[in-house]
Amino acid sequence: MSFTQPKENKILEEALVRQFQGGDLEAYDKIAEIYQKKIYGLSFNLTRNQMDAQDVTQEVLLTLFRKIHTFQGKSAFSSWVYRITLNASYMKLRSKKKEPNVSIDELMPSYNGAGFQQEKIQDWSENTESLLFTNETRDVINKAIELLPEKEKVVFLLRDVEGLSTEKAGEILDLTVPAVKSRLHRARLFLRKKLSSYFEEFSSRKVEE
């Protein structure tokens, strides 16, 4: 099931939540099955650590079990699950020594006084196919995501990786739609810049060969 839930899935899920709130443990198993991969994926992408992602997933699934009676259905059930997942992941991150983030502003595009591009822009968008699943490319992408400041990273993960709508990401993070858009745009610009160095270098390597 994807995050952009088709209507039937949403109805099925709401029914499962109601059944579980009424004491049906099989409904809980189904909810845990539906959400396990999503919780693990999001927490792994935030913490970049398998043990942490496992701990977070366990904690979130147990919280769902214990706190289901506190879920009142004011927002979507999935939003509630994501919020719990994000909080648990942040707890893990805070307990660790933090590497200083790179300043995102330094990597924003620069323009001359008249508002025109100052840097040379190469189009590497056609060259990514053959590189996409190599270990080297994966490492470069993971490293770039890791360097994103937390505020931008979480928006990027919810919106572009998990495929949630801007409105839903805003609901989960308690941000306005313009704030979600602005952080997402900055995240994409930062990542584009980071990936450009790699793909441009790869293109020049190819020319030399």
Partner: peptide
């Protein structure tokens, strides 16, 4: 490349 960035990051993550 802005569009590609989203696609390749999503596919990888």
């Amino acid at each position: 490349t802005y569009k590609s960035t989203t696609t390749i990051c999503r596919d990888t993550l």
